[in-house]
Design a protein around this nucleic acid. Structure first.
Lengths: 134, 134
DNA sequence: GCATTGCATTGACATCTGTCAATATAGAGA
DNA sequence: TCTCTATATTGACAGATGTCAATGCAATGC
């Protein structure tokens, strides 16, 4: 955990998610819910989703801002803003090389989300008989 | 609204997600991104996450509003509002029985999200050598 | 019928969020 | 140095979102 060449921008969100699998076993705590929600908010935007997908489908799962901006009809500051959100939520790493800034996918955060949502997606398997109770 | 006891509240979001696995293979289309984002927005809220988790951890993955409200320090209309959002996004089914209204988890939508995010979570495996390109 | 209970809808409000133009900053090259 | 290029920051604004009090409505029980 700690930060060795990876910077911890968020208060250990990964840990919170990785440790247990809420959402199905027991009601989430308000704290947990708040943390998860903040990560979800980061990807719950069309522009940021597209930014993520562009970065992910690039070589090395990284791309510089100059490659991202042309995909959108948005101003450069707006793109910069969205990248900042993704970075601060731990979804993208940032790497400045010369004049350019490269953003690189950080799959851990995404994996944490999948870990969280998977049990919910698998819920109710075989419980299809609960249709006509009497 | 063509509703034959199953109601399609959303324009076939499940289908959009189930058919392909964007986010890693190629840049998402703006349309896809918008649809996915709207589903993500539905769960990107602490109250709604907790509502979901309470429903999911209940017997039969369902609960009536009267069981949900007491978990929160929020007004009844506010809870009703959040339930509506979850229902309209396809995450919860609604079932009125007498005076009570039961909300039941609909794992398909969640599964669609997991299908979408999983490849992103698995990205970069063993690609740790991409560090010094030259 | 009438009153009660459970939930939804409405309307108002404050806050949050996405966007832009303008500006700042930092590195590269002359 | 001075200029140019790539990106970030600031400040302002409109629209979206979460919340509540008040009200509506449907099912139950008297």
């Amino acid at each position: 955990m700690s930060n060795f060449r990876g910077v911890r921008r968020q208060p250990a969100l990964d840990d919170v998610l990785a440790c247990c699998t809420p959402l199905t076993h027991e009601p989430m705590s308000p704290d947990q819910a708040a943390q998860v929600a903040s990560l979800l908010k980061a990807i719950a935007d069309p522009v940021r989703l597209r930014l993520l997908s562009i970065v992910l489908s690039h070589e090395g799962e990284e791309a510089c801002v100059c490659e991202l901006t042309p995909h959108f009809d948005l101003s450069q500051p707006t793109i910069s803003h969205h990248l900042k959100v993704l970075h601060e939520s731990g979804l993208l790493d940032r790497d400045k090389r010369g004049t350019w800034v490269f953003y690189k996918a950080r799959p851990q955060a995404m994996a944490a989300l999948v870990t969280l949502l998977s049990p919910a997606a698998a819920a109710g398997r075989g419980a299809d008989l609960a249709e006509a109770p009497a």
